[in-house]
């Protein structure tokens, strides 16, 4: 895999960390778009190097849905939730970054367990773990939604990358299903906003059900 693929994977990881630690709505949207751009970059590399021309459809879907549609829906739908988004946990941003470091190391190590492209695989795993941390550490609608959308992007990149035994047509089909689900998720969040100005489920009783 070319250096371009590894650079795209590094950008994917950086954008995921960015989504986790940034505080302003504008920057989180930008980081999500950067993450989608990195995903599209990996798809381009796979399309060119693997001679899988159908993957250009994946690139197109990424640009239209992930970079344009989803950030716009979330931006409009959750406009009043923006204020609650920040690293408000007791441990603060420094603590979060330490967790990010440990999880990223774990992801990179995992990638070295016999994968054909260890650096690339390791960075994708690292990004996935960081996204999972954001999902479990934050309970505001705004950050959880971005975390899930971000995880969705990373997993799709992983599936396109690892599932090379899959014919490209099926790969694209699954990517399309997954992107549609992300779109539905953004729309559900929009709907939630109509009944809640915010939805903070951090209180213990709610978490344990």
């Amino acid at each position: 895999m070319s250096i371009l693929g590894e650079a795209a994977a590094a950008l994917l990881w950086l954008a995921t960390v960015g989504i986790m630690v940034v505080k302003t709505p504008r920057s989180v949207t930008t980081f999500y778009r950067l993450q989608a751009l990195a995903g599209a970059g990996i798809a381009v590399v796979l399309a060119v190097h693997g001679h899988r021309t159908l993957l250009w459809v994946t690139v197109g879907l990424t640009v239209i849905v992930r970079m344009a549609l989803i950030p716009e829906i979330v931006r409009r739908g959750l406009i009043t939730s923006r204020g609650v988004y920040s690293a408000k946990t007791p441990i603060g941003a420094g603590g979060l970054l330490m967790y990010v470091l440990v999880l990223s190391a774990a992801g990179i190590l995992l990638g070295r367990m016999g994968m054909p492209n260890p650096t690339l695989a390791g960075l994708v795993f690292a990004a996935m773990f960081v996204s999972c941390l954001q999902l479990s550490a934050r309970y505001e609608v705004w950050s959880m939604l971005w975390a899930l959308l971000s995880l969705d992007t990373i997993v799709d990149v992983g599936v396109v990358m690892f599932g090379r035994a899959i014919p490209a047509s099926v790969d694209v089909g699954f990517y399309a299903v997954s992107v549609s689900l992300a779109l539905v998720l953004a729309l559900v969040a929009h709907r939630i906003q109509e009944v809640h100005s915010t939805l903070d489920v951090r209180n213990l009783e709610e978490l344990i059900g």
Partner: peptide, 28 residues
């Protein structure tokens, strides 16, 4: 009910991502 749907979609969609990646990894 909206709050329940939100929790449902967040937790199970995270699961869906793991399930898809896990299935593709294992079978590949």
């Amino acid at each position: 009910s909206i709050e329940a749907a939100w929790k449902y979609v967040i937790v199970t969609e995270t699961g869906a991502m793991f399930a898809l990646l896990g299935t593709v990894l294992a079978l590949t």
